[in-house]
Design a protein around this nucleic acid. Structure first.
Lengths: 154, 154
DNA sequence: GAAAATCCTAGTAAATTGATAGGATAATAA
DNA sequence: TTATTATCCTATCAATTTACTAGGATTTTC
């Protein structure tokens, strides 16, 4: 393996890697899916989702809070409370989910649609090979996220 | 911004983000491009590339070493020495460059072609929404990397 | 008013990144 | 031969990020 660098996050044997999904996003997606699959619109408790999806409850708590604050979920306190979707799954595109949980879809700021920033080390985007490549990567990822709503993942 | 989390790596104002290109890969790509643009096959010194591309020389040194060890570059020591491409740019697909510098192209191990690993928290890939989405993301990224050789970025 | 749930801020250990330090080795030129 | 030039190589480091956990405040229901 190159460089003798190994990587613990996927648990073993991986080389050096950066471009990967955070647990936060992974768990967030699983929770949204779980809520979408539930019959009716009854609130579902954090504890139930955490248990069914093998997620740390406290960690999931903070993720669901983020999703609520960003308009994906509603919540109810007290007995019989919990979280529920406030939109139809087919009206929740993955672009918005990814942007909220994971951040910009672009892999470099100079090709970001919503968070554009000039790279300070690069004098000219027009001739930058990284820019050229990452623009294509962004577009292809964007296409996938635009094509998929929560309903498509069920 | 959600969660009050800010991100320093792109330098300011970004929210929480993970899916981004490392400097290592960015610099590696720039160096490869630089070498591909040079006339002839004369070795180019690290110092020259570092200066022209605004890269820390020592950091670049370690990156070029990785690229050499992985069969992209040849090197020559002593005066007049440096690094040079040992293949034609059109014969260097971005898939191999990305895999060596950045790691697996997949964003989760359970959809990785070369580094497959079952997610330990997920009982069934067939019904996993994350798996379903990330499979599409991997395929679209792979398509881009397969379509682009170093020659295409010049 | 007790119980059950979410809300919210803060903190933390381990991993990762993006470097730097410092010398060993090899090739060339004087 | 010796000095110079450049790559080779290992080790180390501070700052950042991740993936949590702690601990209580608040709100709703019974």
């Amino acid at each position: 393996m190159p460089n003798g660098q190994y990587f613990k996050r996927w648990n073993v044997k991986f080389r050096y890697i950066r471009v990967m999904l955070s647990k936060k996003t992974k768990y967030g997606l699983k929770a949204l899916t779980y809520l979408a699959r539930v019959e009716g619109k009854e609130p579902v408790q954090i504890a139930e989702i955490a248990k069914q999806e093998n997620i740390s409850q406290k960690f999931l708590e903070s993720i669901l809070l983020t999703l609520r604050r960003n308009g994906f979920l509603g919540s109810k306190k007290g007995k019989g409370g919990g979280y529920y979707l406030i939109k139809e799954p087919k009206d929740i595109p993955m672009t918005t989910v990814m942007r909220v949980l994971e951040g910009p879809i672009a892999m470099v700021p100079c090709v970001s649609l919503n968070f554009y920033e000039k790279c300070d080390d690069c004098p000219d985007e027009a001739t930058c090979s990284v820019h050229k490549l990452m623009l294509q990567v962004r577009d292809s990822a964007l296409e996938v996220y635009r094509d998929n709503t929560l309903a498509d993942l069920l």
